[in-house]
Design a protein around this nucleic acid. Structure first.
Length: 271
DNA sequence: TTAATCACCTGAGGGC
DNA sequence: TGCCCTCAGGTGATTA
């Protein structure tokens, strides 16, 4: 599923093909995404030139001058740049036809994603205005995690997956980051020291940075061959490795459920 | 304000 | 082979 590194890779991948292109048409095949695709979207976008493609958390922002297209890929979405002649396939819900003969196409089998249009600065949009800092910037650091966790009884894993604390840490990277920082995922967030939060913040940055690099290699296929679905198998150390030996100590990786999500950890290395 | 739970959705995989 | 069930997961909304 697209996590922050995959979304960033898709942004880098599609940007050269859409920037400075004019949207000549918008085709909505299925408006029933997480929120209904605005029926007026074609009228809003037709004739507008895309000047930039940015990312905020897992949201892609297509700057069209006086308005912005906001796209979230949910759990199963992907955006592909395809030739105009390529017929739509199952789950191709929205097409943006561009002046260079390409189509920017949203495919999302589970329809957890969204396609929205806003005239206000996107950072003021209700979905984006309360988001936490970007994890790969200087605005995100261990001191911030420490300060914002005081008095919180929620587990540290749920805490770092909260997009109001920091954006882009999904289940996979939460598991991997906590392993790297040697912190047990069920520890209450408010009872972790500043020093350990500094280690955790560094681990989150390291894991996400490495994943962006790997995703960059993986997802390039989406642009070139338009649809190769295979994700590069990240070198995951705990995620989906239940019962397998820990790469550090050899003890079997444990799995539990937290907040309806699978958690993987090493009970010897993480405490 | 915080925490817990629910809802949304479809494909994959396992059991029978 | 086909049917049924469970699981996976991001995130806003709702409830306590």
């Amino acid at each position: 599923m697209p996590e922050l590194p995959e979304v960033e890779t898709i942004r880098r991948c599609v940007a050269p093909g859409v920037i400075d292109q004019t949207v000549t048409d918008v085709i909505i095949r299925n408006p029933n995404l997480r929120w209904p695709v605005p029926p007026a979207l074609p009228d809003c976008m037709r004739g507008r030139k895309i000047s930039a493609v940015e990312r905020r958390g897992k949201y892609l922002l297509f700057d069209c001058g006086t308005g912005t297209l906001i796209v979230h890929l949910g759990m199963s979405g992907k955006m592909l740049l395809e030739p105009e002649s390529k017929p739509a396939e199952k789950h191709d819900h929205v097409d943006f036809t561009l002046s260079n003969g390409k189509i920017l196409r949203l495919n999302d089998p589970r329809r957890f994603g969204c396609v929205l249009w806003t005239l206000e600065p996107p950072r003021l949009h209700p979905l984006l205005r309360d988001l936490g800092p970007e994890p790969l910037t200087e605005q995100f650091h261990g001191d911030l995690l420490y300060e914002r966790s005081r008095g919180r009884s929620v587990t540290v894993k749920e805490f770092i997956m909260n997009s109001h604390i920091v954006v882009g840490v999904g289940n996979i990277y939460a598991n991997e980051s906590l392993f790297a920082a040697k912190i047990h995922p069920t520890r209450p967030a408010g009872r972790i020291s500043l020093q350990r939060y500094r280690q955790l913040a560094a681990a989150i940055k390291e894991v996400l940075h490495a994943a962006v690099e790997q995703g960059g290699t993986t997802l390039r296929d989406f642009c070139d061959s338009a649809g190769n679905p295979g994700y590069f198998q990240l070198e995951l150390r705990v995620y989906k490795r239940a019962g397998q030996p820990c790469c550090a100590c050899g003890q079997p990786i444990q799995t539990i459920r937290q907040a309806q999500r699978a958690t993987f950890f090493c009970k010897k290395c993480q405490h």
